[in-house]
Each structure stands twice: as structure tokens, then as C-alpha cells.
């Protein structure tokens, strides 16, 4: 059942966050000025998680790349948004586009992996059925 762990982790994180931000209002000044940064951090996190799943499936998962990728992507995206605010160009769009396209790329690779696996299983079953009927 360990395959469900990421989903459980995301859900429990969401609930803890909702309780903390929604009920206890911590931090109390979580205002609109942080909204773009938080959204970008969320997007970077999504990108890293999908990238991690993909590399895990491909068998070349490295924890240092995984963690440093998450931290640095988040910081760079927030820095871009901050710089964009300062110079009046919506630079955070660059981060959104780059991270968004990577999310879709990773998702499509994960999807292909499972579709291929399912197809292989089906063929194997058919062969098994065929071999048993031959007997």
C-alpha cells in the first residue's frame, strides 16, 4: 500500500495547512501580497513531486537532486516574482510557464509508463489464456 503514501501526505499537509491558516490565522498577516509567491511555491512543489515520481519510475531517483531541486526552484520562482514586481514586468509568468510545461511533461511520461505497463500485462494475460486453452 505504500504507493498511496504521496497522496496521503499531500492530503494531510493540505488539512494541516487549512487548519493552521484558516482556523488559527497563523501567520496573522497572510495577505494578498504573498499570494503570487505562495502560488508559485505550490507550482514548484508540484513540479518537483511529479519529477520525483517520474525519476523514481525510471529508476534514477537521487535524493539530493530531488530536495535541492524543490528548494532552489521555489526560491528562484519567488525571486523572479519579486524582481518582476520591482521592475514592473510580470516575470513570474516565466516561472509559471516553465514550471507548468514541466509538470505536463512529467505527467505525460508517468502516464505513458503506466499505459505501457498495462498493455504489457494484458498481452501477458492473453498469452497465458492462450497457452492454457492450448493445453
Amino acid at each position: 500500500m505504500s504507493g498511496w503514501l504521496p497522496v496521503v501526505g499531500a492530503l494531510s499537509g493540505f488539512i494541516v495547512g487549512m487548519v493552521m491558516f484558516g482556523l488559527f490565522k497563523l501567520p496573522p498577516d497572510l495577505t494578498s501580497s504573498y499570494a503570487p509567491y505562495l502560488s508559485l511555491a505550490t507550482l514548484a512543489g508540484l513540479d518537483t513531486v511529479l519529477g520525483g515520481v517520474r525519476s523514481g519510475i525510471e529508476g534514477r531517483f537521487q535524493d539530493d537532486i530531488f530536495v535541492s531541486g524543490f528548494v532552489l526552484n521555489t526560491l528562484l520562482a519567488a525571486a523572479l516574482a519579486f524582481l518582476g514586481d520591482k521592475i514592473g514586468v510580470d516575470l513570474f509568468l516565466a516561472a509559471v510557464v516553465a514550471l507548468g510545461s514541466r509538470v505536463f511533461l512529467n505527467l505525460s511520461l508517468i502516464r505513458r509508463y503506466y499505459l505501457t505497463k498495462a498493455a504489457l500485462n494484458r498481452r501477458k494475460e492473453n498469452e497465458n489464456v492462450a497457452s492454457t486453452t492450448n493445453l
Binding site: 503514501l5 496521503v8 501526505g9 493540505f14 488539512i15 495547512g17 491558516f21 505562495l38 513531486v49 523514481g56
Partner: peptide
């Protein structure tokens, strides 16, 4: 991945 998913859910909230 699970730990990062937790962080991700937190940020999402």
C-alpha cells in the same frame, strides 16, 4: 516524495 507531497499540500492550503 511523500514528505514533499506533505509540504506541497501545506503550500496549496
Amino acid at each position: 516524495v511523500t514528505v514533499l507531497c506533505f509540504v506541497l499540500g501545506f503550500l496549496l492550503a
